[in-house]
């Protein structure tokens, strides 16, 4: 009987409208429904405002923004806000995936619009400016030291070497002693030697050729009277 009563109450409960609203979170406002309709993106923004400390909602917002084809700036913004709230490991993985999706999209766009070249140029330009500033500072220190009544030769040598390295070497970066300038010089010397050797061998060959030609000519000249006699 107990079982029948329980089953009956369960069915009764499921069919009565009041018990459906188990949590009072969802009041019905039929009259204002039309005016209050929100788009999913607006709804996401509303929840993000309601839950400022939640990294999950920010992460899910970024995920749904991808689904809704929202602007990538917005996705990146949600991603950064999620990262700011110390996300758990599962959310970190979601962020890893979202960032991969973003990177992929930006890369393909940049490839199509030819932005890579511009970005590379901008990057190199910035680096070059920084190197120039560093070299100028080194130069300034060098001359400041030089103008002193008793300049420290060791320091001047160091300043000079740093400036030289900045301008001509990448040994500071790679930790190797090999420099591009040295490579160029060695290559140049090797080329010079090779050219010299080639020149010498060519001239020798030329001399031999001329000599043989002369012998042949002499022979022809010496045989000429005999030929004439024969004719």
């Amino acid at each position: 009987m107990n079982a029948v009563r329980i089953v009956y109450s369960a069915v009764n409960a499921s069919l009565s409208a009041d018990t459906f609203c188990l949590d009072n979170l969802f009041p019905t406002t039929e009259n204002t429904k039309k005016e209050a309709d929100l788009s999913p993106v607006e709804l996401l923004q509303l929840f993000c405002a309601h839950l400022p400390k939640s990294s999950l909602i920010q992460c899910q917002a970024a995920r749904y923004c991808i689904e809704l084809r929202a602007h990538r700036q917005k996705i990146a913004m949600h991603l950064v806000q999620a990262a700011a709230k110390r996300p758990s490991l599962d959310l970190q993985f979601s962020m890893f995936c979202i960032q991969s999706v973003l990177d992929e999209s930006y890369d393909s766009d940049a490839q199509q619009l030819g932005l890579h070249r511009y970005l590379k140029f901008r990057n190199l330009n910035l680096q070059a400016s920084k190197e120039v500033v560093t070299a100028a500072r080194c130069q300034q220190r060098f001359f400041t030291e030089l103008l002193l009544p008793t300049p420290d030769m060791q320091r001047m040598r160091e300043q000079g070497r740093v400036g030289f390295d900045y301008m001509f070497t990448d040994a500071r970066v790679n930790g190797s002693a090999e420099t591009p300038l040295l490579t160029v010089i060695v290559t140049f010397l090797v080329l010079c030697v090779a050219l010299q050797l080639m020149n010498e061998s060519l001239s020798a060959a030329n001399g031999l050729f001329l000599q043989s030609l002369k012998i042949h000519k002499n022979a022809e000249v010496s045989n000429l009277p005999a030929c004439r006699n024969y004719l």
Partner: peptide, 24 residues
């Protein structure tokens, strides 16, 4: 229904999982 009336609703969702569910 809540998603449609979210702006007018006085009850704010405090559970992040429920908020995500509403959007989903």
């Amino acid at each position: 229904q809540y998603a449609r009336d979210a702006r007018c609703s006085k009850d704010k969702i405090t559970d992040e999982h429920v908020a995500e569910l509403v959007v989903r």
